[in-house]
Every structure is written in C-alpha cells, then in structure tokens.
Simulated scan of single mutants.
Amino acid sequence: MKKLSLLLLILGSALGLSAQTAPCCHTDAVTEFAGLANREDFRMAHKDPLPYTYQGTAGTEVSFHAPDGKTAYGFLFKAKKPTDKYLFVYQEWYGLNDYVKKESEKLYNDLGGTVNVLAVDMYDKVVATNREEAAKAMQSVPRERLKAIMEAARDYAGKSAQIVTLGWCFGGAIALQSALINGDRNLGCVMYYGMPEKDVNALKQLHGPVLGLFANKDKGINPQVVDEFEQNMQKAGKTLTVKRYDAEHAFANPSNPIYNSEATKDAYSHTLTFLKKQFKL
C-alpha cells in the first residue's frame, strides 16, 4: 500500500534468502529504498491514513519465537478446519494497523475460511499514524530483524505448511523476500506495487509463481522497474504475471484519500483467482 514500503522492500532484498536460509540479496537495493524515504516528494506522495477502527472478531493476536531470540507478533485468522495452508499478509509502511487487519479478514472470508491468514507484524507492535512516523518506523527496523520475523512466521506455520505471501508497497517487497525464505513451502506470491528483487540468482531460488500488481503513475516502483523485474524473472526461469494500472502508488490502500476503487476491484479479482488456484480451492 504505501510507497515507503519500498524501503523495507529493498531491505527485504538485502535480507539473505534461499530455500531455507535464503540467498543473500543486494545492499544497494537497501540504499536505494532508504534514499526514497529521505526524499520529501516521496514522503509527501503518501497521504496520512483516514481514521478507522477495526471491529472484527474473527482474528486474534498471536506471538511466536524468532531465531534472533526475540518474540515476533502477528494477527491470525484461523481456518475453520485444521489445515497447513497459510496466507502471510504483509503490511504497508504504517505498520500492522486496523486497515491491514480488515483487509486480512476480507481475504480470509473470501477464501471461505479454508486458509489460515496471518498478518505478520514487521514493526514489533509499532503503528504509525502519519507519513513522518511511518518513515521513521520503517527505517529504524534492522534488516536482520526483518529477516528473523519472516523466518519466525515460516516456522510458526510449520514444516509441512503450504504458504502464499501477499503484501502492499513495503509489504509487497517483503512478500517476495518472504517467499524466498519460505523455500519449497512457498506456493506463490502476490505483490502490490512492491520493490522487486533484482538479483537473478536469488530469484532462481523462488518456489511458486508471482502475481505483480503495479501502478503506471508510480514514481518509485515505476514502469521501468517493473520491466526489469519481468526480464529478471524470465532470466531466472520463473513465472510472473504482471497487471498494470493507470493509477498512483498505493491505489489499493483504502486508508489512502486517493484510493482507486476501480483499479483495486480489478486487482483484487486477479488476487483471489491467483490465491484459489495456488491453494487449490
């Protein structure tokens, strides 16, 4: 959803990734993304979220052990019947706020309650309410911590888990990095305008296809970045389906005053079709 997600997205690129221990990604991607957050035009392009309070009752907060010795957190919508199918949902740059919980519940319901939907908290319970707080929160999380949280989510799901990852902006990049970390447990990945992994060798380790949903008016994850992603995925021998919209970055974020309902509706339709196919629902 929000652009600064790019920073962490690239941070995610810098997190070592492979089937189990992910191949190492580029630190220059981290620098690139961090640079975006330092640009005033980039920050100002992110409108502060509209007020919203989550009122659902199906989800519950969960915690799990991370390999760095710390506790990781998430918000879980547990499948109605026991299953190893998990959808990992990754926040945009404001953190795991009530909007992310609402979107996670929508995904859970639209998948018929047949999949465990886990919204993973990448900020350790820090939630930003404006662009300045979001930029600070995103830049303050060490790359090693981001990697540890993604590994913790994978381990929480279990060794027999079947996982699809999904995220917006910052979370879109993290979703791809998480997919790499998940190794052969990964079934697929949905990226909403997230910074792609640029290391072809890292992409070669990816399991499952990717659905990329991008905005043509995005000044950060611009059409040239998307073109390069398509080329790199082809070089890696991986499946990527790209949908491009005549919209701004964060077009699918309902907290965004410039929310694009038509683009969001179409993107969500493709998302559901992709998820149902990968989970064989």
Rank of each mutant, 00 (worst) to 15 (best):
Leu187Cys: 09
Tyr259Phe: 15
Leu87Gly: 04
Thr21Trp: 06
Thr71Lys: 15
Glu228Met: 12
Asp98Arg: 03
Gly171Lys: 03
Asn253Cys: 14
Tyr90His: 11
Gly237Asp: 10
Tyr90Gln: 09
Lys238Leu: 07
Ile221Pro: 06
Ile181Glu: 12
Phe77Pro: 01
Ser13Asn: 15
Lys277Ile: 06
Leu176Val: 09
Leu4Ala: 08
Ile149Gly: 09
Tyr52Gln: 02
Glu248Arg: 07
Ile149Gln: 05
Asn253Ala: 14
Cys189Glu: 10
Asp227Asn: 12
Leu7Lys: 03
Pro23Arg: 11
Tyr73Ile: 05
Thr60Arg: 14
Val62Met: 04
Glu40Gly: 03
Asn130Cys: 09
Ala128Trp: 04
Phe75Leu: 10
Gln177Trp: 09
Glu197Asn: 08
Gln162Arg: 15
Tyr192Lys: 02
Lys276Thr: 08
Leu4Glu: 10
Lys102Arg: 12
Lys280Gln: 14
Gly112Arg: 05
Tyr94Lys: 09
Ala79Asn: 07
Pro142His: 08
Asp218Leu: 00
Asp246Glu: 13
Ala135Gly: 03
Gln177Pro: 01
Asp28Val: 06
Lys78Pro: 01
Asp68Lys: 07
Lys243Val: 02
Pro49Phe: 03
Gln162Lys: 15
Thr21Tyr: 09
Ala29Asn: 10
Gly220Pro: 00
Ala29Leu: 13
Asp155Ala: 13
Lys198Thr: 15
Gly56Thr: 03
Ala267His: 05
Pro209Ser: 14
Thr165Lys: 07
Glu248Pro: 00
Leu203Tyr: 06
Leu36Glu: 12
Leu176Cys: 04
Leu187Tyr: 06
Pro67Lys: 04
Gln231Trp: 07
Asp84Met: 01
Gln278Leu: 08
Pro51His: 01
Lys2Trp: 14
Ala152Ser: 14
Ala202Met: 11
Leu166His: 00
Tyr52Ile: 09
Leu9Ala: 13
Lys106Gly: 00
Gly194Ile: 06
Glu248His: 12
Leu4Pro: 00
Ala119Tyr: 00
Gly16Gln: 11
Lys243Ala: 15
Gly12Glu: 13
Gly172Pro: 06
Val242Thr: 15
Tyr54Val: 03
Ala179Arg: 12
Asn201Gly: 08
Glu230Arg: 15
Leu206Arg: 14
Ser18Thr: 13
Ala72Asn: 03
Asn260Ile: 02
Lys219Gln: 15
Tyr73Lys: 02
Glu133Ile: 04
Ala72Val: 04
Gln91Leu: 08
Tyr259Ala: 02
Lys276Arg: 15
Pro67Met: 02
Asp84Ile: 02
Ile10Arg: 12
Asp110Lys: 12
His46Lys: 08
Ala66Arg: 13
Ala79Thr: 11
Ala148Val: 11
Gln20Asn: 12
Ala34Lys: 14
Asp199Val: 13
Cys25Ile: 11
Pro257Val: 10
Gln224Val: 15
Leu203Asn: 04
Ser63Lys: 11
Thr31Asn: 11
Leu36Phe: 15
Gln224Asp: 14
Arg244His: 09
Ser178Gly: 11
Ala148Arg: 09
Ser269Cys: 03
Val100Cys: 01
Asn38Leu: 14
Leu211Pro: 09
Pro257Arg: 13
Cys25Glu: 14
